[in-house]
């Protein structure tokens, strides 16, 4: 998947006007909503850099909100995101941060709250051409792109958890492309992200949760 496809050139199919400010924004929010069980009732978007400066004219706000409602980059409902969010009872607010300069120019923090009152904050960067990177989850630095199907395991940083994760995946015959562990600090909460070549079987989430140190599991399937 690292090769440049003809559809990276003639594509993406997208709602305009900008692959970085519109399409990329919707992809970040789309990935973010996959990381919390829905429905999401409240969202705050904090925009940095060029996102903060030009988000209205690029429809970055509509694209973010659309992505959060599960719309893909070529979904024409993105234009009507505000109205559709209102209909769904999804409350949203956009804020800009122009102070922070040591940051990728097209960055957004998305704070989400679901019906059960759980919250999650995801930071994404839009890299151009609709490509994105998720760089933080709940303040912990991570790194994944959504180009591969990924399982994100939130767990305590204790011995045996990584072995449990690989065992569950190998039992389900999942071929691991990348596996990385990110943690707040030693012995504290950790995020293990495993990316796989094919689709991930949904059953794997239940098996992973069986370990006492595992707090939550999220599966983000690749659209490719």
């Amino acid at each position: 998947m690292d090769f440049i496809s003809v559809f990276d050139v003639i594509g993406p199919n997208m709602i305009g006007p900008s692959s970085s400010h519109t399409a990329g924004a919707s992809v970040i929010a789309y990935l973010a909503q996959k990381m919390i069980s829905g429905p999401i009732v409240e969202a705050e978007f904090i925009l940095y850099g060029s996102f903060a400066k030009t988000y209205r004219g690029h429809g970055t706000d509509r694209a973010l909100l659309g992505g959060l409602m599960g719309f893909s980059t070529d979904d024409t409902r993105i234009r009507d995101s505000f109205e559709l969010a209102d209909e769904r009872g999804l409350r949203y607010v956009f804020a800009v941060n122009t102070q922070e300069e040591e940051i990728h120019p097209n960055t957004v923090d998305i704070r989400m709250r679901n019906e059960q009152g759980q919250t999650m904050t995801v930071r994404g960067e839009s890299l151009g051409g609709g490509k994105v990177r998720i760089v933080r989850i709940n303040g912990v630095q991570v790194d994944f792109t959504g180009e591969y199907s990924a399982v994100i395991v939130i767990h305590m940083d204790k011995p045996g958890v990584a072995a449990h994760i690989t065992k569950c995946l190998s039992d389900q015959n999942v071929n691991i492309a990348f596996m990385r562990l990110f943690r707040e600090s030693k012995g504290q909460r950790a995020y293990t992200i495993v990316e796989s070549d094919g689709r991930l079987p949904e059953e794997v989430a239940g098996r992973l949760r069986e370990h006492p140190s595992v707090e939550d599991v999220m599966i983000v399937q690749s659209e490719n």
Binding site: V9, I10, G11, M14, I15, P17, R62, T76, R79
Partner: peptide, 21 residues
């Protein structure tokens, strides 16, 4: 015109240059 009004286009290779091809 479609692109700048949040319509559906194909980036080729980018959204800003999507009219030429």
């Amino acid at each position: 015109e479609v692109n700048s009004s949040m319509g559906l286009i194909v980036a080729a290779p980018t959204a800003g240059s999507s009219g030429v091809v």
